[in-house]
Design a binder for these strands. Structure first.
Length: 399
DNA sequence: AATCCACAGGAAGTGCTGGGCG
DNA sequence: CGCCCAGCACTTCCTGTGGATT
């Protein structure tokens, strides 16, 4: 046992494949961002006035996942604050993690050195304190709101309204907002006033194409791997898979990392095409399984209902059908079922998570409903639901 | 052309949690 | 201590509707 462990550790330390694994992790920002020169220049141009003490325009950044929005923003702002010294601060807030008005404000407050309890205060009170805090600091503050669509869809544009108009109440400090989203239709959700002030400048990040992805991967691989650790076909394959997924660079890097880890675990010295294929499966599955595992009970039950109906070869699953199955499963487990209204929302949630595909259709005389299909493998669902269903003695129903 | 199904999905409210503040 | 606050998961009540069938 000890020897075995030692072996694992040894293999990691003296990896034949990895030179520097960290270079492939999603939060690593390289010194150079290939194929984003245009965006970097434009962003820098917009933000540069901050160095002269005036407020840069608010900026809106669009682009699909993994097109370098976050990396470019952090890169440019990092350089800017370095140059600007104490007069410029930038605050990065991810609105997926902080998806309520309160949490965004609290996070903002925390970053300018104000302690805010994570619950309990009225939002207006937090706003007041943020205002005072900013005024006291007397700086140019640039707030990056990443994945801003999550915030607005969930909690409205209240905070955005507050932030874009805050300068009217500040005399000593100035604040700019950079909003980042991968939802191209996001602007439609916004109030006209917020829209115009947030969209003072707009920046679009196009997806990377196959060649660009390959180029990025090569540069990164040179830092991350030992020479000769990759089979020739590995990088093109990773790039091609990611290019099909809207040119998602994060996915490309993730695939490369996972493939290398799989190769290493199986004791090989070279990453091959088959490892990438395995990695692709793993990435897809992990995504779904993780999501499923963390879902609340009723959501899991609804998914289980869809799963069971699918296994029973029922086609054209509708909301009503699923609801009946769900009630049946809930009763067996001795759980009080929730109403159909709620199930309707849960189905939408599952759709948003990408686990199912729900489409509103009209069946004429037979009403208006949603047609639902699973959009992940039943393998992933089994694995994600395994523990709960086993715990509740439902396994035999799902086989 | 009118009807009518089987829901969609908006609005408002409830009860609970987990925390302020004075 | 009592009261307030936000968020969450959910309910109740509701109005709206695409298009096959009558």
């Amino acid at each position: 046992m000890v020897d075995e462990l030692d072996d694992i550790f040894e293999r990691f330390i003296h990896s034949k494949i990895f030179k520097n694994r960290e270079k492939l992790l999603p939060d690593y920002i390289p010194d150079r961002l290939p194929h984003r020169d245009e965006q970097i220049k434009k962003l820098a141009t917009i933000l540069a006035p901050a160095l002269g003490g005036s407020r840069p325009s608010n900026i809106f950044i669009y682009g699909l996942t993994g097109t370098g929005k976050t990396a470019v923003s952090r890169y440019v702002l990092g350089r800017l604050t370095k140059k600007g010294g104490d007069n410029i601060v930038y605050i990065y807030i991810n609105c997926r993690q902080n998806d309520t008005n309160y949490r965004v404000l609290a996070e903002l407050a925390r970053n300018i050195g104000i302690k805010i309890p994570f619950t309990g205060l009225a939002t207006s009170e937090v706003k007041k304190r943020v205002l005072e805090g900013l005024e006291r600091r007397g700086k140019i503050v640039i707030v990056v709101l990443d994945e801003i669509d999550h915030l607005v869809k969930k909690s409205g544009d209240d905070v955005l309204y507050f932030l874009t108009r805050i300068n009217e109440q500040l005399s000593n400090s100035k604040l700019s907002v950079i909003g980042i989203t991968n939802d191209l239709k996001f602007m439609e959700f916004l109030d006209a006033r917020v829209k115009s002030s947030l969209g003072e400048e707009e920046l679009v990040f196009p997806p990377y194409n196959n060649k660009e992805l390959e180029d990025i991967l090569r540069k990164r691989a040179a830092e991350a791997f030992h020479e000769g650790a990759l089979d020739n076909s590995v990088i093109p394959l990773c790039a091609a898979i990611a290019a099909r997924q809207n040119g998602d660079c994060r996915l490309a890097l993730d695939l490369l990392l996972k493939a290398a880890e799989i190769a290493e675990r199986s004791g090989e010295n070279v990453v091959k095409e088959e490892h990438v294929r395995l990695a692709q499966k793993e990435v897809e599955k992990n995504l779904a399984v993780d999501v499923i595992k963390t879902m609340p009970l009723h959501v899991k039950l609804v998914l289980a209902s869809i799963y069971v109906l699918t296994k029973e070869k029922v086609k054209n699953l509708t909301t009503g059908l699923i609801y009946n199955k769900y009630v049946y499963l809930a009763k067996i487990m001795g759980i009080e079922p929730v109403t159909q209204r709620r199930i309707s929302d849960i189905i939408n949630e599952l759709d948003m998570l990408g686990l199912i595909n729900a489409r509103v259709v009209s069946l004429g005389r037979y009403g208006r409903t949603k047609i639902i299909k699973l959009s992940v493998s039943s393998n992933s669902i089994e694995e994600g639901l395994k523990e709960d269903l086993f715990m509740l003695g439902l396994t035999e129903l799902t086989i």
